[in-house]
Each structure stands twice: as structure tokens, then as C-alpha cells.
């Protein structure tokens, strides 16, 4: 039996949970993130080490591999960009 690919909302939920853990924000605040919410370069606590932890955690929880070349400013700049990237990676797998 083939396992169904995780749905978009499932990826969205997991990604919000990871951001909640990384940023130490409450669920309600992360729930209000929309596609335009700024991340890297907008949130001072999200420095390169925190982003590295975020990407490594995304690999674990979404079961994806993120390559060197995948990481660019665009995918990290907004929540929408990061979600679109995560969805594309999950499909690719």
C-alpha cells in the first residue's frame, strides 16, 4: 500500500510547530503568520545559527533533504516562501 503524501495543511501545521519551537512564540502568535510574514532578515532572533537549526529540524520532521543550493534569501524571507519551498520538497521526495 502506498502511503499518501502529506497534505498541504499537514505541512503547514508542522512548519508552524517548528517555527514555534525555534522562536519560542506561543501557538496563537504563530497561527497568525501569513504568507507575507517576514522571517530571515525581519526577526532579529532568527540569525544564521537559528536558521540552520530550523532547516535541520525541517529535514527531520518533514522527512526531506535540503541541499546547499536550495537555501536562498527568497525561501527564507517570508513564511509563504518557506512553506512553498517545504511543499515542493515534500512532493519531490
Amino acid at each position: 500500500m502506498t502511503e499518501l503524501a502529506p497534505s498541504r495543511s499537514d505541512i503547514d501545521t508542522k512548519l508552524r510547530a517548528i517555527l514555534r519551537d525555534v522562536l519560542g512564540l506561543d501557538a496563537e502568535r504563530v497561527e497568525r503568520f501569513d504568507g507575507d510574514t517576514g522571517l530571515f532578515g525581519h526577526l532579529p532572533e532568527l540569525d544564521s545559527m537559528a536558521v540552520a537549526g530550523l532547516l535541520t529540524e525541517m529535514e527531520d520532521r518533514l522527512d526531506i533533504i535540503i541541499e546547499d543550493d536550495d537555501v536562498d534569501g527568497e525561501m527564507l524571507e517570508t513564511y509563504g516562501g518557506l512553506l512553498a519551498f517545504a511543499e515542493a520538497k515534500v512532493v519531490e521526495n
Partner: peptide, 9 residues
């Protein structure tokens, strides 16, 4: 991996 990544970012 996380530390290498932090450096490349």
C-alpha cells in the same frame, strides 16, 4: 550539519 549550514548562510 547545523554548524556548517550556519556558516554557509
Amino acid at each position: 550539519r547545523a554548524m556548517l549550514r550556519a556558516r554557509t548562510i
